[in-house]
């Protein structure tokens, strides 16, 4: 009974006002355009061999489920040099959008950092540069030195200060900017 009492004026109201709105009642879904769902780091041994692939996937973006981190292709071999490359995808769109291209187009505003945890004996070198001669970090080399294990963190910063002390050499301390993506992998050199 109570319901009906209100239904009437609401009905009248909707008749008065619906004329004003021409929006489709069913909204269209939004796919996050800038979302990065997938980061794939491929390490190819110099002179041939099996690629080692570090991968993190977070299909629902900010929130919900935690990212899934995998390493395939085994451990790094001591004394080996690897050619590294990073690929970023937005796999929530079909076909998946390649975000790496966007990063390279805005190279001056982006930089990858490779943070090597204590205990892990590897060294990294940038193999690409932006228009100002500063590193981007999509391409790099990694040398696995001695037998060791530890964390290896890949971080993409948006609008870092590339001219700050140490930043061009890969030191993230003074880089500033905002973190677009970051993931830590546990790796072993054997």
């Amino acid at each position: 009974m109570k319901k009906q009492f209100f239904t009437y004026p609401i009905l009248v109201l909707s008749i008065i006002f619906t004329g004003c709105s021409d929006d489709d009642p069913i909204p269209t879904p939004v796919n996050e355009e800038e979302l990065i769902t997938t980061m794939t780091i491929t390490l190819s041994p110099d002179g041939g061999g099996t690629d080692i692939v570090l991968k993190t996937v977070d299909m629902d973006g900010d929130g919900g489920n935690a990212p899934v981190v995998t390493i395939t292709g085994g451990n790094l071999s001591a004394g080996t040099t690897y050619n590294g490359s990073i690929e970023l995808l937005n796999a929530s769109e079909t076909p998946a959008e390649n975000i790496t291209e966007e990063v390279q187009e805005e190279a001056e505003e982006h930089q990858f950092f490779y943070t090597i945890g204590s205990g892990l004996d590897v060294t990294t070198t940038y193999e690409d540069e932006d228009g100002d001669g500063n590193p981007i970090g999509v391409e790099f080399t990694l040398v696995a030195n001695t037998v060791s294990a530890g964390d290896l963190t890949f971080t993409l910063r948006h609008e870092p200060n590339k001219s700050a002390a140490g930043v061009a050499d890969g030191d993230i301390t003074n880089a500033g900017g905002e973190t677009d993506i970051t993931e830590t992998f546990s790796v072993t050199v054997e």
Binding site: S14, D23, E34
Partner: peptide
């Protein structure tokens, strides 16, 4: 008092809606 309110969140932002589309009726 009677009131009708419509919220429209433009999907072209490329960002998931913070506030959804709705119609609201008050009496």
């Amino acid at each position: 008092m009677t009131r009708y309110q419509n919220n429209f969140a433009n999907p072209n932002t490329g960002v998931r809606r913070l506030i959804p589309d709705y119609d609201k009726y008050d009496l």
